[in-house]
Design a protein around this nucleic acid. Structure first.
Lengths: 330, 330
DNA sequence: CCTATCGATGTAATCGATTACATCAGAAGC
DNA sequence: GCTTCTGATGTAATCGATTACATCGATAGG
């Protein structure tokens, strides 16, 4: 920078101002500086700026595993806004190992990032709370109500209810539910929505029809197999993920039964392959990209102290009707 | 840091040494320093260190779109090694817009990253060459041989050949190929492998059996539909991606034909859903996670000047035989 | 006993920008 | 004509660690 200043015949302060606050520099001087910058092919050293300003224009995204399409879609949304607003995205893959996140928390304390978006951390409440009190943090898409922190979530209760309702409306009375791991709020909420729909429909919840899965294809397969082994199997199943729904369907088919004729299935997530699978999956579509965008937007407000209180945004899932539930609208 | 120094009764230099080169500090002093660090809950400011050392311990991964499973698997591998070696991973999503990469290139010039891994950039040769001459760069999984830069690639010619060979061995003579976009080397190589297999088998390449797709489900569907509309449709198809293979199968089924009975299909990539799809897909599995790990390892060597020449690593794909080709080994 | 060497530590320059404060010329107001 | 204000620019402190060099005491060798 001093080279540029020398060549332009001004001080380094003027060079800096030309780049950061052009309006405070005379047009003529500005031109000289720009000419010198171009002549020397000068690029500011961002590290020095960051040190002085104590900001990095970088945010950290902690994700259980980036290979999972649900998370990578959210990251896509985060990245879109980050780019637009001049932020960089640092990826923190925990591979489901909770302790890994403590390494990432140090990034904060070392001022390596200005903020953080946590995707499903399983971090103990007090730890997260302490962190959120001190640093800008947004949690998505699974957040516990017990921590005061900004969140971007899905209305999982309502979504679970609407998925189940759809099956009720189609005339099903024995509707099973294969939930996600019940240690996360989203799974609990979807289960709750399922129960609400049944109760509000005037029926009783049969707990033998509820099985806990872990969102994977194979857990869906096994849960469904267990349901089929009972004396009175369900006529419909609401699964908390599309992967589990596919597993369930595979299990149903393996018994020589047909979907949706013998058993109707509704999934959750609307992953890419849900419209490729046979039968195509009726599912609750989460606006994941949108949610990622919102999470980043909220985080930036927080970083700039534009929003002092924590904010909560709740999105609605969209019911996408395809073949697996037995009705196709055109 | 000066607070720590004061409390421990030493200079800042000693504090720094205690953390960076503990062996040069007397055990007793070291203890005093550690005690002071703990008492004050001190964390070094990494920005200052970076500025002084002119290194960021951060690498940039430029990826066309992170939502694509092929890329996110490679990123997973990169991330694994990065973590192990104390590097952070900055994500650069280009969303297939080539010009976006120029923004990321500035990161280099501004010394925001120590190195870069490029996943399928479509960057013009001269630009990439200039960059590679000046900075540590690794290209994967699609690289042009015309640029001198370290690469981690798949042997796409051999892979295409083996996939096609497998179909030849099963007795097929009219084998079609649905390629990826032919502007990238991997697609050209897979096509070349396909042609080699046919020629070496003693047959002739029929160019009406070659269709260009773009790796997507729908392009596979359309390419297959076009093939089925010809007077003598193929009895087997080798697709350059699993997604296209699924599209092709959907097209075949929509004509009332059966896979593999009427037409055998082989895919490429071994994405997660290839074993869920019906029929399960025979496919060439790329060791994507491994390739990501290797790319990062090579990059680190380059950053540390351990490897002065550019290096090239070529991986082999593994043929995974499932239902869609008509033979199942147990 | 003196000097060379070494180990442990301190002093202060350094990385490269940003920015509070100082300076100065010229315009405006009285 | 003198003061005051304003706009443009320069001077130098600053961010917080790292590290070349300096210092000093102790030990070893002669």
């Amino acid at each position: 920078m001093s080279d540029v200043a020398k060549l332009a015949g001004v001080s380094t302060a003027t060079v800096s101002r030309t780049l950061q606050n052009p309006e405070t520099v005379k047009e003529e001087t500005r031109q000289k500086v720009f000419k010198a910058i171009k002549a020397l092919d000068y690029m500011p050293n961002v590290l020095a700026r960051q040190l002085r300003r104590m900001e990095t224009k970088t945010i950290l995204v902690v994700v259980p595993n980036i290979e999972n399409n649900v998370f990578s879609q959210i990251v896509g949304g985060i990245d879109a806004v980050a780019n637009e607003r001049g932020y960089k995205v640092l990826l923190g893959n925990t591979n489901h190992r909770v302790e890994k996140i403590y390494d990432y928390i140090d990034h904060f304390k070392q001022r390596q990032v200005d903020g953080m978006i946590v995707l499903l951390s399983n971090l103990p409440d007090p730890v997260l709370q302490d962190l959120a009190n001190e640093f800008p943090i947004v949690v998505t898409p699974d957040a516990k109500a017990t921590v005061e922190v900004s969140t971007v979530t899905l209305d999982n209760v309502e979504s679970g209810k609407r998925a189940t309702d759809h099956l009720l409306k189609l005339g099903h009375r024995r509707i099973a539910h294969i939930s996600g791991t019940l240690d996360i709020t989203s799974s609990q909420d979807r289960l709750q929505g399922y129960q609400q729909a049944i109760v509000e429909g005037g029926y009783f919840v049969d707990h033998t029809l509820i099985k806990e899965g872990d969102f994977t294809f194979s857990s869906g397969f096994e849960a469904m197999s267990a349901l089929l082994n009972t004396s009175v199997p369900p006529t419909a199943v609401f699964c908390a993920s599309d992967e589990m729904a596919m597993g369930a369907i595979k299990s149903i088919k393996s018994r020589g039964l047909k979907v949706p004729d013998d058993i109707a299935v509704v999934g959750f997530d609307n992953i890419k392959f849900s419209e490729v699978f046979e039968p195509t999956l009726t599912t609750m579509a989460q606006p994941l990209f949108q949610m990622g965008k919102k999470a980043m937007t909220v985080l930036i407000e927080r970083i700039n102290n534009e929003a002092l209180e924590e904010q909560h945004f709740i999105y609605q899932a969209e019911l996408i009707v395809r073949e697996s539930c037995g009705v196709i609208f055109r």
